[in-house]
Design a protein around this nucleic acid. Structure first.
Lengths: 130, 130
DNA sequence: ATCATTTAGTTAGCATAGCTAACTATATTG
DNA sequence: CAATATAGTTAGCTATGCTAACTAAATGAT
């Protein structure tokens, strides 16, 4: 299962590359777009990455005009917000990934599709427990 | 599903880091250990990576004493073979991953476990079609 | 048989991404 | 007000991905 999951992800990333944005940047931006604005530390936690790493990922996204750093009441924190451009790019990427998966799933029988559906619902729970 | 798979992989990689070997090296070595010796180009294909990338990954593994480059009849090709040390390290890593997954799966009911099992068998087929 | 082409790998050079250690600036607390 | 804690950044290392350009070996065409 570990191996299959690894290769599934690798294939999907090939499509992601079309967005012209690195995988870590893409994943971080998706948290902002689909989960709303948050601080750098929160984003680092969500992405299971250290603050310096997230700091650089955010710098790249900012340079590309995909997010903005905004000041907060607490002078130490920043609020990271996806720009319109960032949001648009992400929705296009999601569309591509869904197309790839849909293509692969289309040739499966109804029974198999049902199994995939069941596991997709189960996975987040499993992940939380690891 | 894409998101859940991404985070599942990320969690498992945390355990993999304990091996003191990078994720790409670990994955390439696992192909040799569990799939047998092969050429650099074949390994690059299996890992969905370009030859120069695989060349450097292999160099790292060789430097660490985890695999050997052997000559073949065709003077251009090399045969990559995991060493005893490489094989041992990989089995220990597999053990750690299995422990992590087992821990997460242990709390599931029998029905859910059955679903996971069915999908684990289905995944490689899906991956091949993407 | 020789010269051109194809194939397998490597080297060089660039960008992204992960880390720790050390720093700055702002809040909080004693 | 001084000491400490918290949020981010900077610097510097390694690993991993790419393309372009190279070497060496095998194949093929005349």
């Amino acid at each position: 299962m570990h191996s299959a999951v690894l290769h599934l992800l690798r294939r999907l990333r090939v499509r992601d590359r079309e967005s012209g944005i690195g995988p870590a940047q893409l994943s971080a931006l998706s948290v902002l777009v689909f989960g709303g604005p948050r601080s750098l530390g929160e984003l680092a936690d969500a992405e299971q990455v250290r603050p310096p790493t997230m700091s650089r990922i955010v710098s790249g996204l900012e340079r590309a005009g995909l997010l903005k750093r905004e000041a907060t009441e607490d002078g130490r924190r920043v609020r990271l917000v996806a720009t319109t451009k960032g949001t648009k790019i992400l929705w296009e990427g999601r569309k591509r990934r869904v197309e790839s998966l849909a293509h692969a799933l289309a040739s499966l029988g109804e029974v198999e599709k049902g199994r995939v559906r069941e596991l997709a619902e189960l996975l987040p729970e499993i992940v939380r427990k690891i």
